[in-house]
Design a protein around this nucleic acid. Structure first.
Length: 155
DNA sequence: ATTCTAACA
DNA sequence: TGTTAGGA
């Protein structure tokens, strides 16, 4: 069993899932022309291979392009679609932080238990105020204040 | 075979 | 945005 895991580990390493422009184009139904154009508009990124000139895209970019394509197909302009995709990505990252470490940070705000949900942006942290009964509310506080208020739970 | 940039019948 | 030229 351990041997299977060792041998198959590389299969699940997303860092190995990189694509060239033709592959990404067929995967997402977004033309190579569009991919180059979107990159020029700073909507997506590609990294260069050492010694090569051909673009290399990561799995994350594949997801990003897929999202932009989705919103594009639903009537959004390119710029708006990219913004939507970025927003979705931010929410996903926030949710992931919450799932993996959000429950470790607790604080008390206004006499209520609050969960530190992680950095919302460069300056603010999202706190979820959880009353004993009723609706959970959310508040953005400066990162420094969130750090001061939050008490990490022991492992 | 595939990708690159620049340019447009 | 598509497509094509001309080079790597």
């Amino acid at each position: 069993m351990a041997q299977f895991s060792d041998e198959m580990r590389h299969v699940f390493d997303v860092h190995r899932l990189v694509f060239r422009i033709g592959e990404l184009a067929s995967m997402t139904q977004v033309s190579a022309r569009q991919l180059r154009y979107w990159e020029k508009k700073q909507l997506i990124k590609s990294r260069e291979r050492e010694g090569e000139q051909a673009r290399v895209y990561t799995f994350g970019t594949f997801v990003q392009v897929s999202m932009i394509k989705y919103y594009l197909d639903n009537g959004y302009t390119l710029t708006a679609a990219a913004a939507k995709a970025q927003e979705r990505d931010s929410r996903a990252k926030l949710l992931r932080r919450f799932i993996f470490k959000g429950l470790r940070g607790f604080a008390e705000m206004d006499g209520q238990v609050a969960i530190n949900m992680g950095a919302f942006d460069d300056q603010q942290t999202l706190m979820a105020l959880v009353p004993e009964e009723g609706t959970v509310t959310y508040r953005l506080v400066p990162n420094a204040e969130a750090r001061r208020l939050t008490q990490d739970l022991p492992d």
